[in-house]
Design a protein around this nucleic acid. Structure first.
Lengths: 214, 214, 214, 214
DNA sequence: CATGAATGAGACTTCATTCAT
DNA sequence: GATGAATGAAGTCTCATTCAT
């Protein structure tokens, strides 16, 4: 009369998250269902009560990641200072975060691999696009705000989306190279190099008050 | 130096290259020794005469890739024009190349995955670093030449290495996002966005003839 | 005799019948307890309240089948005409019935398989024997009646049981071949072939009224 | 240079026959690949070198059975005596054979089960039809010979095929009932009952010596 | 009583590796 | 040196059975 009650969706989430941790560490292909089961503290068969196949579990784990990223509070350190420092702070926070937890990068790579293969379910999920959406939108915010405040060229407001893609591409590429060639890529220096070049081209034509005359 | 040794090494190379093609297409983990053997046109057992394990074969294939990339002629289309067009041509050639043959990207990702794992033999090989060396050095060449010709700031000559890392990081990140989010990332436009910002900050202080005087 | 016991037995019957339907369709071995539970509209665990194992459920289902067959009204189309047409009508009805619902045949085969295995519980149940009892007894009735009416040889009355076995064996064999070689076995024609030969040998020596004298 | 040579087809045959023995004993569904491997004296993986799936092995085993039956010498005890004794001897030999080795019957039942299921590969193989072909053709031979010798009605020659189907259906049905109800079905008596009725209807019109002349 | 979540043995299948020829 | 047949551990998945609620 009072059967054991379990919120199936909730349990799915829990298991997907447990799986995510293992997948992140060892990759999708090299992680066995047994390992996931062990990490989740359940029997192998239990996984199949919630996911009809490993593939479905992989997709669920990736989706859980996306949901987690999308729900995450935007990096809190955002004063109302100038666009350049704001963007720098945002990106430093990002790179730092994934350096501290390399499993995020492993996950990103694992997902990328799937995203590239046309038939792969991860490609259909559009994981890469969605995972980078929050940071892209934060970047867009900073740029538009800078333009609105007259600190950046007015066209920036229109180009903000494209610029955000540019920034994210750079940051991801930088992070990957940094991890792949440890010690050879100075993250902060490279970030500054990029940001200064970028802002050089985005800055509003200097008004007389700020530019020191001869 | 005995002919036999040379022969054996040569054969190893051939087999590693055959393996490379399959690995690039399907990834290291998802490719079986049988598939490699078939692609190489030898029996499975033969592979073990030249490589004592699958892992050794993977390393050899990655090394073969590195060797191949290092030996490749630099992109031929390099006139003696201005640095910006030269760099653009170089990078467009690069991105175009891997768009035409996505297996290079798959390979890059597979290798990246290994390169990130501290214990992994691919990390010891420093594959990522070495594979990007040729393009980095081409970039360095263009930058130094530009500085020497007075078209770029003189400091560029000294920063050339760091700048090359920046460029390569951006291009790789851009390529990955492009492949992962098909249709959403305009490769050429993003490249131009990046290059123009960069060159804005590298260009030699405009000579009087071009800069409008007060 | 307490109401509870009756209830419990009733429920067992219901569940066994629900199981029977699924077993008939998919065979004993290929049907899972889950499928039975679903078909019966109860939870898997509930089955174990009434049957301590799958084997017990199988036996109960087979018994339910037997009970059902034994309780079935004899084929209603039995005029008081001559034995041959009566028997033909009876057997045609039988074969037709199982052609319309092949699951009966599947069930018969599944049960046969068990019945052949000495240790099998179905062998102890004597299912085959009991399932064919009603039709055998109908046949016996027709034959004895024919003998009593002087239409069949008087010895037929004594041999009726053995003859019924013969008829049933033939009909079952015919049905199986018909189903296994669709299109190759003309059921009605073969039945007539058999029945005419049989009745040729059973018919009472033609009385003078029927046999035209010279 | 001299690789281990194995006639793949031959080996397939051997393995299929080993599998056949186990399948016959325990049925297709209840026999695991492990059991087949053990019976065949090889490792589980070896089976997959010759059969890409269990289903393929089942089909191969069934085919091997068919081939074996088709190749078997017809029951040798066939004098040139009258059709009835010849047929009786043939059928007694058949029934006796499968009583001595019940695994043939189990096999027959297992195959029947598949043959009935429309999608089943065994249905496509037409196993039942082919397995019974040799005995059918022996029956046809006896009947035609009897007709040619004037011992059977001339029409029998034309109906021989249909009659053979009738006989085989009866014999199979009889055998199944005999096995399923041990002790209750007298094989020889039932066979005689059937054969005498049949021959009563097939016999050539009695020659003048027996038929009362006008 | 009834439920259904959980289990774990075991099914089918793949694959890196070995070794007799 | 080369082969490819053979192996067996390990992978994915199923299912009869148990038990807390």
């Amino acid at each position: 009369m009072s059967p054991k009650l379990v919120d199936k969706d909730l349990r799915r989430q829990e298991l997907a998250l447990a799986a995510l941790a293992v997948f992140a560490e060892r990759g999708f292909a090299r992680t066995s269902m047994s390992q996931v089961a062990e990490a989740a503290g359940v029997a192998k068969g239990t996984l199949y009560l919630y996911f009809s196949s490993k593939e479905e579990l992989v997709v669920a784990a990736a989706s859980a990641w996306v949901a987690q990223v999308e729900a995450a509070a935007p990096p809190p350190i955002d004063p109302a200072s100038a666009p350049l420092p704001r963007l720098r702070a945002l990106l430093q926070a990002s790179t730092r975060a994934f350096l501290e937890d390399p499993s995020v990068v492993k996950l990103f790579l694992a997902v990328l691999r799937g995203a590239i293969e046309p038939g792969d379910p991860l490609a259909r999920l559009d994981v890469v696009q969605r995972v980078s959406a929050p940071i892209r939108s934060a970047i867009v915010g900073i740029l538009r705000d800078g333009a609105a405040r007259g600190l950046l060229r007015p066209e920036v407001a229109q180009d903000a989306e494209r610029l955000a893609v540019n920034v994210v591409a750079f940051v991801d590429g930088l992070g990957l190279h940094h991890l792949a060639s440890p010690g050879r890529v100075d993250l902060d220096a490279q970030l500054d190099l990029y940001l200064e070049a970028l802002f050089g081209s985005l800055q509003a034509p200097d008004d007389p008050l700020r530019q020191s005359p001869p």
